[in-house]
Write a protein that binds this DNA or RNA. Structure first.
Lengths: 266, 266
DNA sequence: TACATGCGTCTCTTGTAAGAGACAATTGCT
DNA sequence: AGCAATTGTCTCTTACAAGAGACGCATGTA
């Protein structure tokens, strides 16, 4: 079930690249696919299962996994024939964070924001054409809205998505959005034109609020972080219960915009 | 004749991987070297410089870097022709952390420890045969001892190194330590036998203290974290001024051991 | 002006890595 | 027991990626 869904997403994502028949695949590509697959499934995976999930030959998969384990990019997980990410990826990731002012400061702001407001707060970015939660800090509510770092969601489902695409030409937006992305979890369909209108509106107002999109119980408030005038590099967002009062909502939006502006390069 | 044979054997033995002349190199290996090189230099690097630093052909380097950038493992840095780690590595790294109890809890303990004691505290692990600072939290001293996450240091220079090797056979230890590793930054040389004695002693006492090894001003206190009885998975350590009193030192060691034990799998 | 150095792209060749498939050893099921 | 499925290793072939090197375009500096 979980596997099936992850696999389907994987295939959908990879299909738009050209496919010159089913010929040989470069080793590096296989490796990239392995990493993506592990990331999509968020758990250690057996080598055989990996080969099956990637439609890769077993022999090749064994070889590559062995090399990656030796290199420390992957590690054999507890029971012995499963692999997951390795320490070296963690070290590289920390190095990235250290070298990236926006991310470092953004994490702090997000943590502070969720501490002050008690709501779940997130830092989001565009990552290979997808909306990605780069850092999140859970709120203090008894039933808190959870969302794991690294989670990727279709852009049209989110408030942040509307801000992240602000300033892009229509053609680029269209290229990023697939048909499936426009269908919400509950089955409703967003019209592409409506979505693009939303983007323009979000750009003009400098923030975005969506209600009941990914689920029926939450509202999503987002504000843009600029890396250059007009260029949205990231968004900060708050996920609050859908019945949050109009007044509190606009207070939160104001706070959010202030913090996001603080992160922006002036 | 004899010389020739000896030389051949030496070459075969010294490069513990076989080396069939300087022929073509696999793409994946080039990539691993690129990542390691970036990690070692901790900064964005131009592609030409990268090729030079790795002794890799320029054309190949350009190709690989382009692919890695497209994949999101690398990113072009600000000025345009330099590359550094990419967001995807950060996401993978966070996924590793989430899936790794020891690391997650270890980071918290380290942060707490440095907050409580005011001293610089670190979580260390063995990473491909080298001592690696996996997480560190700076102390509150005016001139604090800094040490970046991901830094790799020869094992004999550190207290943690002595604990991390506890329980390994002498041959395995010898294989991990090169001649250079035994020479301290100030030029002094550690005898391998002394080092191995230290390891046995550290194992017996359950902690290790070294003074003035990496520099003349600091003492290093370390305690082991076990993943299984007898198996040292990591160490927690404190880096304190070398003139710290005997009494405070032993207080800190006691605290350190308690916290490290808490992290160990019982 | 000439000359040197570095960057980014392109073409062509050949050594070799990706892949097919056979194999033995486990494991689980009936 | 017998049968089916899975795991890890190994061998061999050939499609193709790694690499050499030329090219044009920027720089900088004598």
């Amino acid at each position: 079930m979980q596997d099936g869904k992850a696999l389907a997403e994987w295939q959908a994502a990879s299909s738009d690249e050209e496919r010159p028949a089913n010929s040989r695949e470069k080793g590096l590509n296989r490796v990239l696919h392995i990493l993506d697959f592990l990331h999509a499934n968020q758990r250690a995976i057996g080598i055989g299962e990996l080969a099956k999930g990637l439609n890769a030959p077993r022999s090749t998969t064994y070889t590559l996994v062995r090399e990656l384990v030796e290199a420390g990019l992957l590690e054999m997980a507890g029971d012995g024939n499963r692999v997951y990410f390795g320490k070296k990826l963690y070290l590289y990731g920390m190095a990235y964070m250290r070298g990236n002012d926006l991310l470092r400061r953004g994490r702090q702001e997000v943590d502070a924001l969720s501490r002050e407001t008690g709501e779940t707060s997130e830092l989001c970015m565009l990552q290979s054409g997808r909306y990605t939660i780069v850092h999140s800090s859970p709120g203090t509510r008894p039933f808190r809205i959870s969302s794991a770092t690294g989670l990727q969601i279709p852009l049209p489902w989110t408030a942040s998505g509307r801000l992240l695409l602000a300033g892009l030409e229509r053609s680029r937006i269209e290229a990023m959005i697939s048909e499936d992305d426009l269908i919400l979890p509950d089955g409703r369909k967003i019209e592409l034109d409506d979505f693009i209108d939303d983007i323009a509106k979000a750009r003009a107002t400098g923030y975005c609020v969506t209600s009941g999109l990914v689920d029926a119980y939450t509202k999503c408030l987002a504000a843009p972080v600029f890396s250059a005038p007009g260029k949205v590099e990231a968004t900060m967002c708050l996920v609050v219960p859908i019945d949050t009062s109009q007044e509190r909502t606009s207070d939160l939006v104001a706070l959010l915009r202030e913090r996001a502006a603080r992160l922006s390069i002036s």
